[in-house]
């Protein structure tokens, strides 16, 4: 192996941290169970299955059944982590999520594995970019998007203790560690970099890109604040209002459709304030992706650090 390039940080598949933490929790609390859809491998549950064969319920390729079974377990005192590839978990079982989980207030932890465009070349059927819009529309469902392995662990632990209907987006596309030792705090944005000109509100895979963008913008004399918005619903509205007061514009960045996800949530706060600030919403604009790897598609849809920087610079140079 050749020497690593100094500027390229190590990156991680968050499913690994997710699975380790889930197994650790299961050792502490026998109410923890996992439910999956022929996805023992893709949900990284091989170790869990070895240790707790009876507590892994693999219903086969049947997502509606999977979520219903999860609700039944939750209503019987168990803490089910329902794990499946995010497009099928959310798309196929949306009504079960609405009726059996959210409306029934059954404390199921829905774990959307490999979300966004993590399944690159497998195409739009396997992309989960609508999930944030769909799920944010459902009352009483928490929507959580961790940004790195540490935050994923922390969010898994939070979900097990919270006993609320929740959705966790568990990333497969490799990301660097960005959150340091800050634990996941439900409902609160974390400021990963302070800044006074423009605020970038990012989630999941976009957070490290937002930090890179902020560093590059600083070299061009623009001070960019980066908020990691790991809870999409309910949204930390105070953090948005503060950003409106202290910076001149807001860029949102998400690996999802902008129709109803993070950008839309932030915009709903911004436009209902007395003095809105200009915004740019980065994401996918109601389009099915062409064929390509995840990295290719992120570039295709303008979701690189350079794109975020450009949007931030544009806002910094707009006279409000």
């Amino acid at each position: 192996m050749s020497a690593p390039v100094a500027s390229v940080p190590e990156t991680f598949d968050c499913r690994v941290a997710f699975a380790e933490e889930l197994s650790a929790l299961a050792r502490e609390d026998e109410r923890i169970v996992a439910v999956c859809n022929d996805s023992v491998g893709s949900s990284n549950l091989v170790q869990f299955q070895k240790e707790f064969p009876d507590r892994l319920i693999n219903v086969g390729i049947a997502e509606q059944d999977m979520v219903g079974v999860g609700a039944g377990l939750a209503l019987s005192g168990y803490i089910p982590f329902v794990c499946g590839a995010s497009p099928f978990l959310t798309g196929r079982a949306l009504e079960q999520i609405k009726a059996d989980v959210a409306y029934s207030q059954s404390p199921v932890v829905l774990c959307g594995m490999s979300p966004g465009m993590a399944y690159g070349e497998l195409g739009p059927t396997h992309h989960s970019i609508e999930d944030l819009s769909w799920l944010r529309a459902i009352a009483g469902l928490d929507v959580v998007v961790p940004a790195d392995p540490a935050e994923t662990r922390s969010a898994v632990r939070w979900a097990a203790n919270a006993a609320r209907p929740a959705f966790l987006r568990v990333g497969r596309f490799k990301v660097p560690a960005v959150t340091g030792n800050r634990p996941f705090t439900f409902g609160a944005a974390t400021t990963l970099r302070d800044g006074s000109d423009v605020t970038v509100v990012a989630a999941g895979t976009m957070v490290s890109r937002a930090l890179d963008a902020a560093a590059e913008a600083a070299e061009q004399g623009v001070s960019v604040r980066v908020l990691n918005m790991s809870t999409i619903a309910p949204l930390d509205e105070d953090a948005i209002r503060l950003a409106m007061r202290e910076t001149r514009g807001i860029v949102t960045a998400e690996e999802a459709t902008t129709t109803g996800g993070l950008g839309a949530a932030v915009a709903a706060v911004v436009v209902t304030e007395r003095t809105p600030v200009p915004m740019r919403m980065l994401g996918i604009h109601r389009e099915f992706a062409p064929t390509g790897t995840t990295a290719f598609l992120l570039e295709h849809f303008g979701l690189t650090a350079a794109d975020i920087r450009q949007a931030a610079l544009a806002l910094a140079h707009t006279d409000a």
């Binding site: 390729i61 099928f88 497998l122 195409g123 059927t125 396997h126 064929t291």
Partner: peptide, 21 residues
């Protein structure tokens, strides 16, 4: 030629599949 067939791009494909069922 996507990882799953797309009728909009490939003649002979009658409907888009990928999600099972």
């Amino acid at each position: 030629l996507n990882g799953h067939p797309n009728r909009v791009k490939v003649p002979g494909v009658e409907t888009n599949t990928g999600p099972l069922g």
